[in-house]
Amino acid sequence: MNNTFRTLIAFTALFSSSVMAELAVIVDPSVKLDTITAEQLQRLYLHKAERYPNGVELRPIDQKSGSKRQREFADKVLGKSPTELSKYWSRRMFSGKGHPPRQYGGDAEVIQEVTATPGTIGYVDIEAVDDSVKVLLQVP
């Protein structure tokens, strides 16, 4: 009984953390920016006018489309469903008005790219953050 209960708690915790993962928006520590707002992030990722926060040129990168992180980021920060996002980019891209951010497969690859090419901004699960990067925003 006790064991079952414990398993249940563990399972619930696991389940809820996998559903409600918190995202961290990260850059290389050398980037001259300490914070970014969700709105600035949205303009940057959607390639809109005046998209560089405080004039700092940043190159946004994405996680693989259809991945759990990407869906979460699109929903919480960009405010778009996967279908809406793909229509948005089909209009922009095929009319020559910008490309969707390049996609990387998973947190480790994003961290690697962010630190290898300063000026790159990405997002990962907050659990994956280490000392090699600077967190600009936490997205609950």
Binding site: K87, S90, R91, F94, S95, G96
Partner: peptide, 9 residues
């Protein structure tokens, strides 16, 4: 017009 060929859009 500038993406008229892209029916998906």
């Amino acid at each position: 017009s500038d993406y008229i060929e892209v029916g998906y859009a």
